[in-house]
Design a protein around this nucleic acid. Structure first.
Lengths: 262, 262
DNA sequence: AAAAATAATTGTAAAAATGACAATTAATAA
DNA sequence: TTATTAATTGTCATTTTTACAATTATTTTT
């Protein structure tokens, strides 16, 4: 790109734009002129559960900087979209999924996160059912699932983002039925217990756990059993979606003290 | 400012900067060239408690746009500071206080929040002891405390920010000893009860409340009494700071169901 | 000096939730 | 028929929560 092109692209167009705003109707047009603009991106911490382990979806960057290093899926926010929309778009690109659980986590805005240019990142965490995912996965982004205990080195401050997301997941799952977002539509109680035990890296008493889960009224027992992992087979359950949505914000004390601080 | 000046300020300098980066060592210099930059600001939702009511600190804007309307205290993030630093700086300007409780709330990034130009706002909420504040208040910003039930119209999406902050305050105060941040160093149990009752717009049983509070081990009974509001007088208590800090993230179920959803 | 007034402080019993414990059941495989 | 495997289910002691009102310390009034 020539200097002249750059001139038009970066300088002239904004100037004209600003000039338009400086008509008598808007006497305050120069208000923000002095301020520094910066790039805004979205990064997604994507959790999944394959029935055994809680995992994280990462991509291998195909471009500089930090080419070939592992990274969270992210992208710049476009001029016409908000951060939530950007996160939804990026998640759709990566997983092919729509309507997944997505929540804003935190915004990382240290001046020197990205070596190229100042970029703030609005981080989101997502919970998806890996079975849904596997059907639609595109290898375009070199995406891979990693168990949480063996996450590779990540670019920029993505490691910190993951740590924060994990903490928030534990926090929230202790109080709200959020982990069901990781499960397929039909699941068994032993599977659910596995999930909780993996998330909290702890083991829970089956009887007490079942009692707690059942007392929430969230589960609908199905007639079919899953005979995959035992001779007796375990009954399938479904989420009572209405109950789930209506009571999502209510406290359910699944885990008393998620951080194990005495 | 002349066109030439603008030219140098906005165009030339960044161009040179980018050119520096485009040495053979960094073949990816143009990577982000196409992306749109935007303004990033910080807004602070400042809560205070005057002994009677939970209140919000607002300022009357002295400049366009939305001059004379009420607003949260905010400002643009500077090139050399992160968002947390910006929030601290802005809070210092408004209240004169340092070291106050400050927590990132949420980032608002809809494309058209500010009519002048796209600006994303990283919102923080702060809890301060109004007594500390009153000593240092500067009227420069036309700051005023408003009870939560009579907040005036606010600019942009600030109303939504306040609503979210209030919700988060309730949520967090139900589980963590965060409301102590609103109290002076010495306070009485009836005052603490007042605070909780005002925050949750509910009334709590004195005996059960006291028992709960005392069981946390957070309070140190003082020998003096506050005789301001009764003949008998109420003992002062202080926070056990060490205990407070060490156990802050631990769940203490002050309020069982903060949203009152049955 | 006694009584009244005011707000702070304190106790108890029933109900609910939790935590700690192992035997029984359903189905398949031997 | 028996052995095997994993799922399912129950009880009791402890802790926590809830519901409810009498007592106490001090000042003001009589």
């Amino acid at each position: 790109m020539s200097f002249l092109q750059l001139f038009f692209k970066i300088i002239f167009i904004p100037y004209v734009y600003a000039a338009n705003r400086s008509t008598p109707k808007r006497p305050y047009m120069n208000k923000y002129q002095k301020q520094t603009r910066l790039l805004a991106a979205v990064d997604c911490i994507v959790f999944g559960f394959d029935g055994q382990k809680l995992k994280l979806l990462l991509i291998q960057r195909g471009f500089e900087p930090e080419k070939n290093k592992w990274s969270l899926m992210g992208g710049f926010i476009r001029p016409t979209e908000g951060a939530d929309e950007a996160a939804v778009r990026i998640l759709k690109i990566l997983t092919g999924l729509e309507g997944v659980y997505l929540e804003q986590l935190h915004t990382f805005a240290e001046p020197v996160r990205d070596p190229i240019e100042r970029t703030i990142s609005i981080a989101y965490f997502a919970l998806i059912d890996t079975h849904q995912y596997e059907k639609q996965i595109s290898d375009e982004y070199h995406a891979e699932w990693f168990p949480l205990e063996s996450i590779p080195d990540l670019i920029f401050d993505h490691k910190r983002m993951v740590a924060m997301a994990k903490e928030k997941l534990r926090y929230k799952a202790a109080l709200h039925p959020i982990l069901f977002e990781l499960l397929p539509p039909k699941f068994t109680l032993p599977l659910l217990l596995n999930l909780f035990e993996d998330v909290y890296e702890a083991s829970f008493d089956k009887r007490n756990f079942t009692r707690k889960i059942m007392s929430t009224g969230l589960l609908l027992k199905q007639k079919e059993k899953d005979k995959g992992s035992s001779k007796k087979g375990a009954f399938y359950y479904k989420l009572d979606k209405k109950h789930y949505k209506k009571n999502f914000n209510k406290f359910i004390h699944f885990i008393r003290n998620p951080n194990g601080i005495s």
